[in-house]
Design a protein around this nucleic acid. Structure first.
Lengths: 213, 213
DNA sequence: CAGATTATTGCGTGCCCCGCACTTTTGCTA
DNA sequence: TAGCAAAAGTGCGGGGCACGCAATAATCTG
């Protein structure tokens, strides 16, 4: 009997499809950062990769989706990062460490791109699509959490945990994007996760002291 | 001296603008539920309200935005709901109670609309736009939390709390939408909020028993 | 009431997304 | 290795959408 590989061996067809999709997504992101989303035509992305505009729309249903595809592409790495944590780690520690592992794996983007990203995300359509990409990753993370937590876990709670992680990621990213060059992403991300894992005690304490001084 | 009203008195112009926006949003939602989003032209929404299609685009930059505008419209009620909680309530209790107050104020939608909503949200663009609407409300909630927590509170943590609430709302809504008619929205919502306020202890316990039986 | 401001509208333009039919490529099998 | 079925790529065409611009209509202000 032949052992079933975790990722099935892909035929040439599948590999080419995957490569085309990745090339289109990468080209879309790079060109959008270079010249801005509204100065970027679907035709440009397609010709950059060497396919017809019609083919572009066989892979992505909008250029916004293509630009955000790199986020969705992280979902397998998210899953693997959590699986890679030792079984004895408590759930929150495993989740936080997995997030750290993965976030520190890919280096922080060039500072010059930050302004471009910020400008691009003013575009409502792109911003919405980014949120959708995050939601997709969230679903995968929820599955991974359910898997780790075992059969007794409430899937809804796993989903909630994934939602919390996604919120932390999104907020830390937004902060990093809109703050000066001295702020880093990872410390903010971890701080938010730790706070959340404890039920936001710092904030609750501040509120208590504000209402009963 | 005349007291400054919380909502400034609006001239006829402003009132008409607001009314037009609300009418367009309501028409968009109603028609989209009736016949589905892709069977709905911008022209239909405009003519329903009695304005030109061009005017529609002066108010909303897409029909998806119009359909989701009712979500964004809740932001003031969210703010007020939190302000209305007594000052002695701990932060989490105030937030949860405010959410409950507001969620129970507007009755649950008709069951026949549920199927329509679920089908509509298969549309990627609409789903993305819904997430963007939730993000908008989240920002307002974060402001309200900051205000209640006082000057010593970390705005980032307030943002995180708002993100958690938004996640709970989104997940509870999704569950309610995709489950049978016996599940209710509010209990799920409250359960998720209580779990989150305690750092997801139930899930963590399940994970611990799964890894060390 | 008169002038200033602001909203509405029609028109034109460029682009996008997709269905459909046709061509090319790929992978399997005899 | 030749041939065939399945699947991907492509060209064409259409319906529709978003928005800039300029003209017109409604509203506000003094």
């Amino acid at each position: 009997m032949t052992p079933e590989p975790a990722t099935p061996v892909l035929g040439l067809r599948e590999r080419k499809k995957l490569a085309a999709r990745q090339a289109l997504g990468a080209a879309a992101l790079r060109l959008a950062l270079e010249r801005g989303l509204d100065q970027l035509r679907v035709e440009d992305i397609a010709s950059e990769v060497g396919v017809s505009p019609r083919t572009f729309n066989n892979y992505f249903s909008s250029k916004e989706e293509a630009v955000c595809s790199f986020i969705v592409a992280q979902q397998e790495r998210v899953r693997e990062a959590l699986r890679a944590r030792p079984a004895h780690e408590p759930l929150w520690e495993a989740v936080i460490n997995a997030a750290v592992d993965q976030a520190s794996r890919d280096g922080s983007p060039r500072r010059e791109d930050v302004r471009r990203m910020r400008d691009m995300l003013r575009n409502a359509g792109l911003f919405a699509e980014m949120l959708r990409a995050h939601a997709t990753v969230e679903r995968v993370l929820a599955e991974a959490v359910t898997e780790r937590a075992g059969g007794t876990a409430n899937p809804l709670h796993a989903r909630m945990l994934a939602g919390i992680v996604q919120s932390a990621s999104r907020i830390a990213f937004h902060t990093w994007l809109t703050s000066g060059p001295d702020t880093e992403f990872l410390p903010t991300f971890v701080d938010l996760l730790r706070e959340a894992s404890a039920g936001m005690p710092t904030l609750a304490a501040a509120a208590a002291s504000a209402t009963a001084p």
